[in-house]
């Protein structure tokens, strides 16, 4: 992990000494991180590592106790409205306005951002089509499956063509075909200059998809850099287990053997 940080103006997302505690528990312990512009950045860590907390603070959903965040040089906590304009976010564990139809919900997200109706309509149809929701678009979101809900939430994050996309667990409960489609959309988006930050705990996926990766555990940043730098010849999964630790021995449950 290198100690020389980029200038906040050049990175897509810059985080400096970001910290948050809930009562006694330190959720995020002073993380500093740069996400280079145009990178496909994976954030990995075990359950409860502080991924969602860190991303919530980076996107303006949760006020940090300490530290600063910049999106393309705009301080998220000093000029939140300006920062949010170039940011698309898929938050994890939040509801949607699910008494709207999918089409209404995506339109709503576009209009809230002050876009004009014609553009919103055009992009909404495009998004529903590529996310395989064209038919479901006129159904209420409350009747969607978990995967469809994830996809429609992704559409609300894409509608204003943000410069930086932050996706918290985007592939959870999404079927393989849709996941492949979403990956194509994201790769295409990155190759045209966008920046994507995804959190995941599917290492294999991150290794194949991402150009950069950061590993956090217990609120600390353990490693960050390009995927090849971080994994150093091992598979990302092995390196991850190596970094995070906590693998038990294999002698555990002998009574579970059925014969």
């Amino acid at each position: 992990m290198s100690n020389s940080y980029l200038d906040p103006g050049t990175a897509a997302l810059s985080i400096r000494s970001l910290g948050k505690r809930f009562g006694e528990k330190v959720a995020v312990n002073g993380i500093s991180l740069d996400v280079p512009s145009g990178s496909f950045f994976g954030l990995v860590g075990p359950n409860g590592a502080g991924k969602t907390t860190a991303l919530s603070m980076a996107t303006g959903l949760m006020r940090p106790d300490a530290g600063q965040v910049w999106i393309h040089g705009v301080d998220v906590w000093a000029e939140p409205m300006k920062a949010k304009a170039s940011l698309g976010v898929l938050a994890d564990g939040v509801r949607l306005f699910d008494r709207l139809s999918g089409r209404q919900l995506v339109t709503y997200a576009g209009l809230l951002r002050g876009m004009d109706r014609a553009t919103v309509d055009e992009r909404t149809e495009d998004l529903l089509r590529v996310l395989d929701l064209a038919d479901a678009g006129s159904k209420l979101v409350v009747d969607y499956s978990a995967g469809m809900t994830k996809k429609i939430a992704l559409a609300t994050a894409l509608i204003h063509s943000p410069r930086v996309l932050v996706l918290d667990e985007p592939f959870e409960a999404v079927d393989p075909v849709s996941a492949a489609n979403i990956r194509d959309i994201l790769s295409d988006y990155v190759s045209h200059g966008g920046t994507v930050i995804v959190s995941s705990h599917v290492m294999d996926l991150v290794q194949r998809m991402c150009s950069h990766v950061a590993v956090i555990a217990n609120g600390n940043l353990l490693a960050a850099g390009s995927v090849d730098e971080v994994r150093g010849g091992m598979s990302l999964e092995d390196k991850f287990v190596d970094l995070v630790g906590g693998r038990g021995s294999n002698e555990g449950l002998s009574w579970l053997h059925t014969s």
Binding site: V94, A109, L112, T156
Partner: peptide, 15 residues
């Protein structure tokens, strides 16, 4: 009443 769906308003930065 919005519950956590309110996050959409927060994220879009509606005035």
């Amino acid at each position: 009443y919005d519950s956590t769906a309110f996050s959409l308003h927060v994220l879009t930065g509606v005035s």
